[in-house]
Design a protein around this nucleic acid. Structure first.
Length: 468
RNA sequence: GGUCUCUUGGCCGAGUGGCUAGGCGCUGGUCUGCAAAACCAUUUACUCCAGUUCGAGUCUGGAAGAGACCUCCA
């Protein structure tokens, strides 16, 4: 399979370090608040990549961090701690805040059919690993101490700017950079000291004094702990290329003296039109619950993500989301109808030539740098193809869904609601009027039922009620 | 200021030289007492200019416009 590697900025044939196995690390959430659908795109992407790797036959060891240590709100290594801020605002401890939002994060990703990761690791539970890594860097002479922490000296890593194509000169000539006591513009904190005047919810003892780890070190420490000093794939949002991943590479490769990660795969942003720009201050941040309020299934959002390539910015608006929801609902309806006919799952080697063509086209799409839009096009063409029988269609669609992950899990389906007796009475009335061909009265009954919040759908088996 | 990306039909969005992407929406049709759903059909395209080529949405150069990151948001 072909993947676009940010390292080198080119398409590359993927080859794992260990035959048949893939070690993959995904930058996870910072749990000081509810993740919005923009965040979710990145996790749907990582999940899709994992599913494609699994489809290709790899056993995937997937590790994701939970950033539950408070970091800083503004400027490089300055400002108030985000978790502390959230905690202060809701009168909770940082621990309570991070616990709540971590749980919510997993609920949200689950509703998007994101498969559980092999290991989800919390930064707060790996403080010793992070300290050990900083110590290793210290022993090798890559660090220095300032009044507020231990810093990484990026001048000692000659290839620092290579990954992100950084023009260090340009950065220095650019706008506002707070150097404080840093030796180089690009240096970053490995360990921060607690201020003597404050008592933090989260702080730990270390060889350098009480404090907390810098942001970047957790990913290096935990990824290497669970995947080894060198592993296959590291994913994250495109915004992490310049700083976070550049720093991860610097500290990891200086610690080990060899390549840290072979393939860096980054997901583009979900962007908002200006009219619908989300902002926390306006209170219009769209999250999974917002979708539900709109009457949009979370998985319709997954469909939306799959319908665009992960390396392209994806425009978000309510209208666009509604379109994806319509398409997704049609797919669900088609699958339901198909299942009612009790199709047989066929072994793939018994498929007709025409079906094999669809399967090949599907694989061609997903293995070509995750071209899921093309794979979805293949799916729709298959659905509309009259020359493929239901058994084969079902077999192929279930096969495709191993990657798409669009099948709604039972728990997400809305519970059957009791229909009020009065509505059932009205339905009886309408049926009698219809039998008498009294259309005016029948339509009046329909309107009355609609006013109660139900719509009538006439089928061959009779009239059915649906909640609006 | 630096780095990078994008510009496809009403909307979203694939497509790296020649062949229908696909979805949503619209419209028409079939079906239905009506409606809904479903199915069928149909419509609209490659920002502009110049170049390369037998041939370009696809390559090259230029122009205009949009966006992202450098501000610990994926």
């Amino acid at each position: 399979m072909i993947l676009f590697n940010t390292k080198g900025r080119r398409l590359q044939e993927f080859k794992s370090i260990k035959e048949g196995e893939v070690g993959m690390y995904s930058c996870g959430p910072t749990v000081y608040g509810r993740a919005h659908i923009g965040n979710m795109r990145a996790y749907v992407f990582a999940d899709t990549l994992k599913r494609v790797l699994m489809y290709a036959g790899y056993k995937v060891n997937h590790v994701m961090n939970i950033t539950d240590v408070g970091h800083l709100t503004s400027d490089a290594d300055e400002g108030e701690d985000k978790l502390a801020k959230a905690a202060r605002e809701s009168h909770e401890t940082a621990w309570e805040i991070s616990k709540r939002w971590t749980e919510q994060f997993f609920k949200d990703t689950k509703s998007l059919n994101v498969l559980p990761v092999t290991t989800a690791c919390k930064a707060t539970e790996h403080i010793a690993d992070q300290i050990a890594l900083v110590q290793k860097l210290e022993e090798k002479g890559y660090t220095y101490r300032t009044s507020d922490g231990i810093y990484f000296d990026t001048a000692k890593f000659p290839h620092y700017g290579d990954f992100a194509h950084l023009d260090i000169e340009g950065l220095q000539a650019g706008i506002r950079v707070d150097m404080s006591e840093k030796r180089n513009k690009t240096d970053f904190a490995l360990w921060k000291f607690s201020k003597p005047t404050e008592k933090r919810d989260m702080e730990w003892d270390s060889p350098w004094g009480v404090g907390f780890p810098g942001w970047h070190i957790e990913c290096s420490a935990m990824s290497m702990k669970y995947l080894g000093e060198k592993f296959d794939i590291h994913t994250g949002g495109i915004d992490h290329v310049t700083i976070h991943h550049t720093n991860e590479i610097a500290q990891s490769e200086c610690a080990t003296d060899h390549t840290f990660v072979n393939y860096w795969i980054h997901c583009e942003f979900l962007t908002m039109s200006n009219a619908e720009k989300m902002s926390k201050s306006l209170g219009n941040v769209v999250n999974i619950d917002t979708l539900r309020e709109y009457g949009i299934k979370p998985l319709a959002f997954r469909y939306l993500c799959l319908n665009a390539h992960y390396r392209k910015q994806l425009l978000y608006s309510k209208e666009i989301l509604m379109g994806a929801n319509n398409a997704y609902n049609k797919w669900c309806a088609f699958m339901d109808k198909l299942k009612e006919e009790n199709p047989k799952m066929l072994p793939l080697n018994q498929l007709s030539e025409a079906s094999v063509k669809y399967l090949d086209e599907f694989k061609q799409g997903i293995f070509n740098n995750l071209n899921t839009p093309q794979a979805l096009a293949t799916m729709w063409n298959l659905i509309h193809d009259k020359n493929i029988n239901n058994d084969e269609k079902y077999t192929l669609l279930m096969e495709f869904d191993k990657v798409f992950g669009l099948t709604e899990v039972e728990a997400e389906k809305p519970a059957e609601v009791e229909i009020p007796a009065e509505v059932l009475d009205l339905l009886d009335q309408r049926n009698r009027y219809r039998a008498e061909k009294n259309w005016a009265q029948a339509d009046a009954a329909r309107d009355a039922i609609k006013a109660k919040g139900y719509t009538i759908v006439d089928t061959k088996e009779g009239s059915k009620l649906q909640k609006i």
